[in-house]
């Protein structure tokens, strides 16, 4: 089970990112727990400057926009 955190203060892009992550993970049959992190201190902890950001198992893997499908696949399978 991968722990996927979507970092962002709660704008629409972050919601979209979380939904797409879940959708793609579902299709690939990967078990994930997607969680939205909105606490500024936590986001600062990851040193993200442009949201939405994505952290998988506590490691920042993406920041600065809604990732496209291709990118999500490679993040989840990495």
């Amino acid at each position: 089970m991968k722990k996927v955190e979507v970092l962002g203060t709660g704008c629409k892009k972050c919601v979209t990112t979380a939904e797409q992550l879940e959708a793609v993970a579902g299709e690939l049959g990967i078990e994930v727990a997607v969680e939205k992190v909105t606490d500024p201190a936590a986001i600062m902890g990851y040193k993200v400057m442009a949201t939405p950001g994505i952290a998988i198992d506590g490691k920042l893997v993406h920041s600065g926009g809604v990732p496209d499908r291709h990118k999500i696949e490679s993040l989840l399978t990495a």
Binding site: T9, C11, K12, C14, I43, M44, V48, M49, A50, T51
Partner: peptide, 15 residues
Amino acid sequence: FCSCSSIPLFLGFTS
């Protein structure tokens, strides 16, 4: 720059 990034940007600069 999208306004929803202003918090992380603020924190990134400040920290």
